[in-house]
Design a binder for these strands. Structure first.
Lengths: 348, 348
DNA sequence: TTGTATGCGTTATCAC
DNA sequence: GTGATAACGCATACAA
C-alpha cells in the first residue's frame, strides 16, 4: 500500500488532480463539499504527498537546514535547542542533520539544499577550510556559520557568521590562570591534522598569554591526542594523565573544551590529587556539565543562547535580502572554584 | 549559477543527456574519451545532480534513515556512532535526523522514507504509543526500534526491536540497593504525561522490588519532574534536592537515567552530604560520564554497542526478506563505589 | 468551481 | 557507444 499518489486520490474521490492539489495546499478555491470528500479519501488511504516530486516542482520553501559536525558535543546541542525553538515558532520547518566524521559539511549542505530545496542553512562546527567562496557560491542560499568562521580568502559577503574570538578568549583564559599566580600551565587540545579549527586559535591564545607574561612556552606542557576522534572524556583523561606524569611541577591546566576538561579532572583524581588544591582546571565552552561536575569547573563560557539567536536573526536578514554580517561575541570566565590562587611562596 | 542541470551538461559537452547520466551513474558503457569530456564539464560547472528528481525516478536506494528522539541523550549518541560506522562500512548512506520535542517520530520517518526513498529505518527513543500497526504499514519499509518497543496491540511482524527489559532491569537495580541493606530508596523519573516510555517500566520494576522485599512503596520517595523537558542534569538536581529535604531518612536513590543521576549526585553535594557515605546513587544507561564523574557512579549499564550492532543486523535481515525479530538484551550493574553497604546497626 | 495539459530533472528503455 | 523519449508525482497556467 501507500504506493498511492495524487492521481489515485483524484480518481477515488471522483475529481481532477488539480482539485486534490488545491485541497492539499489550500490554494485556490474548492467547494466545501468536494474538499470534505477529498479529505476523507486522503485520510482513509493515508495518502502522503511525495516530497521529492513536490520539491522538484516548487521553487521556494520554508525549510531551513541545520547541519552540525559532532552533534555529540553538548555545547552544540545547547544552541540547537534555541535555534529549533526560534525557527519553528517563526513557521519554518527544520532539518537537523548530523555530519559524520568523514563527510564534508559544505558538500552535505549543498546537496541537501538542492534536494530539500532549503531556503537557508545554519552550519555548526567543522573546520575553516571547508568554507570556501566556491562552495558558498554553489550553495546559493543564505548561510550562517555558527561557532566557526571561514578562512580570510573566502569572500565575506557570501556568508554570515556568529563566533567568538577564539584566540582572544583562549588568551584570556590563560591570563586568568597567570593572574592567579600559575606559571606552569598545561594545555590540552586536539590535533585536527593541520586543519584550522577553533582549537588552533585557542592554542595561539595560550601561547600569546604565556609569551606576553614572559613565561616560556614548553613543549612538555602541551598535550594533544593524535587520534582522530580525540574529543571525548576519555581523551581528556588519558592525555591529562600523561601530562601530569611528565610535569610534576604543573599547577594548572587549560583545556580546549569542557569535555576534555572533565576527562582531565577525572585524571587528577585518579592520580590521587585534588582540584583545585593540587591542580587548577579551566575548560572552554560553558556546557551544563561543568556546573554539575564535582567540583564545578571554571570555564570560558560562550553565550550559547545569544549566539544561536543571533544566527537565526542573521539568517532571516539574509533571506530578506539584507547583506551578510559577521558578529563576534565575548566569552566570559565562569569562576566556580576549580582554580586556586597561588601565593608567592608556593610557586616553584 | 548552479541552476544547471543534466541537459545543460549534455549540451555543453556536446552529447546526449543519456550519456551524461551514464557517466554519472557509471551504468552502461561510455567511451573513455567522452567520459572524460563530460566529467570535465561537470567539474567546471560544479554540477550536482538534483536528488529530488533522482529519487522521484528511482525505486530502490541504499539510504537508511536513523531517527533519534532527544539526540541530546549521550546514551543514544553512543549507539548512533556504532550504527553510523557499521552501515557506512556496508555501503549505505545514512540520514541521521533529530526528532524535535513536538514532532511525531513515526510521521517524520514515514515522510522521510518516501521523500528520500529510504530502504530501511532505525528509530531510537520516543514513546511506545507512536508505534502502531497502522503507522508501520504506512512506512512500508523495514524498521527496527532500538531501546523502545511497540505496544502489545501492534502486530509484532511489522517491525523488529532491540531492547532491554526495562521492568526487569529496574527491578534488578533496586534489588541491588536492597541487598546492600537499603530500605528507604528514592526514585527519580520523568513523567511523560501518561504515555508509555521506558521510565514507566523501570518505575514498575522499582515498585516490584520493594513490594517483593516487603518494603512499603512510599509516595514521598518517588519524585518526578512534571516539566516536559525534564530530562536534563538540572532536573535531576532540583528533584533530588526536594527529595532529600522531604526524606531525611533516605539512604539511596535510583535514577531513571544517568543524566538524572548525575544531577542528583550534584544535589547530594550541594546539600553538604557525601556519596556513598550519606546517600547511595544508582543510575541507568551506562553513559561514559558516569565513569568520569567524581565519584564514578554505579549504573545499570545497557550494552549499547551490542544493541546497536544487533539493530543493524536485524535491519539487514529484514531488507533481505527475512522476517521481523525481537531481541531483548540484558543490562548489568556497573559497581563503582557510589553505593554503600549499610550495616544492620546503621539502618534506621 | 473544476479539469486538462505541461514541465520540473532524472533514469531507463528503446532504437540507432 | 550513443541519443531521443517516456515515465516518476506533483503544482499550476489555462481552458471550461
Amino acid at each position: 500500500m501507500a504506493d498511492i499518489n495524487i492521481k489515485d486520490i483524484a480518481r477515488l474521490s471522483g475529481v481532477g488532480i488539480a482539485t486534490v492539489s488545491r485541497v492539499l495546499n489550500q490554494t485556490g478555491a474548492v467547494s466545501e463539499k468536494t474538499r470534505k470528500r477529498v479529505m476523507d479519501v486522503i485520510e482513509q488511504y493515508h495518502y502522503i504527498p511525495n516530497s521529492s516530486a513536490r520539491n522538484l516542482k516548487l521553487t521556494r520553501s520554508k525549510n531551513i537546514g541545520v547541519f552540525v559536525k559532532y552533534m555529540s558535543n553538548p555545547f552544540f546541542y545547547m544552541m540547537l535547542e534555541v535555534i529549533e525553538e526560534e525557527l519553528t515558532a517563526q513557521g519554518y520547518s527544520l532539518l537537523v542533520q548530523d555530519i559524520g566524521e568523514n563527510q564534508n559539511e559544505m558538500d552535505v549542505a549543498i546537496s541537501e539544499a538542492m534536494q530539500r530545496n532549503l531556503c537557508g542553512v545554519i552550519l555548526m562546527g567543522g573546520s575553516f577550510d571547508s568554507y570556501t567562496s566556491e562552495k558558498f557560491r554553489q550553495l546559493e542560499i543564505p548561510c550562517v556559520l555558527l561557532t566557526v568562521s571561514a578562512p580570510g580568502e573566502t569572500d565575506a559577503a557570501l556568508y554570515s557568521s556568529v563566533t567568538i574570538d577564539d584566540e582572544k578568549e583562549g588568551y584570556r583564559a590563560v591570563r586568568y590562570l597567570i593572574e592567579q599566580g600559575h606559571r606552569k600551565i598545561g594545555f590540552l587540545y586536539r590535533d585536527a591534522g593541520g586543519r584550522v579549527t577553533p582549537n588552533i586559535l585557542r592554542y595561539q591564545g595560550y601561547v600569546r598569554a604565556l609569551t606576553e607574561s614572559g613565561l616560556e612556552v614548553e613543549e612538555r606542557l602541551i598535550a594533544t591526542n593524535a587520534r582522530v576522534s580525540g574529543l571525548g572524556y576519555r581523551d581528556g583523561f588519558r592525555t591529562m594523565k600523561l601530562l601530569m606524569q611528565l610535569n610534576p611541577d604543573m599547577t594548572a591546566v587549560f583545556a580546549f573544551s569542557d569535555v576534555l576538561a572533565i576527562g582531565a579532572a577525572k585524571a587528577v583524581f585518579a592520580m590521587g590529587k585534588r582540584i583545585p588544591e593540587d591542580i587548577s582546571v579551566v575548560g572552554f565552552d560553558g556546557i551544563e556539565m561543568t556546573e554539575f561536575y564535582n567540583p564545578a569547573l571554571d570555564t570560558m563560557c560562550q553565550p550559547a543562547a545569544e549566539m544561536a539567536l543571533a544566527a537565526v536573526s542573521m539568517l532571516r536578514g539574509m533571506m530578506n535580502g539584507e547583506g551578510a554580517g559577521h558578529r563576534v561575541f565575548d566569552a566570559s570566565v565562569l569562576k566556580r572554584g576549580s582554580v586556586r590562587r597561588l601565593e608567592q611562596e608556593q610557586k616553584i
